[in-house]
């Protein structure tokens, strides 16, 4: 009973923290001034947000096959999301977008 309660509290804390980071990432993607800072905010959603939420769901699932599948998804996201972020930033840099905010017009 108490162990179950502790698991519930832990998973809720993880999921709420994950939701917070997803929310912050969404706000950042809308409000940040230029492409690179926006991307930085959005990558928070991909990595920290999803991983915290998935950890919470794993705690809910317990020692089942579903938990192993969720862990596999988590490893997959941990590998692919930063790679995608790198490829995106790299493509922007190669196509000539400068990372310095003062060179990008502020009113867009």
């Amino acid at each position: 009973m108490t162990a179950g309660l502790a698991l519930d509290i832990g998973s809720w804390v993880l999921m709420l923290a994950g939701s917070f980071f997803v929310f912050v990432g969404g706000v950042g993607a809308l409000r940040m001034p230029d492409f690179y800072t926006r991307m930085h905010a959005a990558s928070l959603t991909d990595t920290l947000g999803t991983i915290l939420i998935l950890s919470g769901v794993i705690l809910q699932a317990g020692l089942t096959l579903a938990a192993i599948k969720l862990a596999a998804i988590m490893v997959f996201l941990l590998l692919t999301c930063p790679t995608a972020a790198y490829a995106l930033a790299n493509a922007a840099r190669l196509s000539g977008l400068s990372p310095r905010p003062e060179q990008t017009p502020g009113k867009d």
């Binding site: 590998l79 692919t80 790198y86």
Partner: peptide, 14 residues
């Protein structure tokens, strides 16, 4: 993407 190390390593893994 041969000269891009990160996508290459992760892609080869996946």
């Amino acid at each position: 993407l041969r000269h891009h190390l990160i996508p290459r390593v992760v892609g080869a893994l996946l």
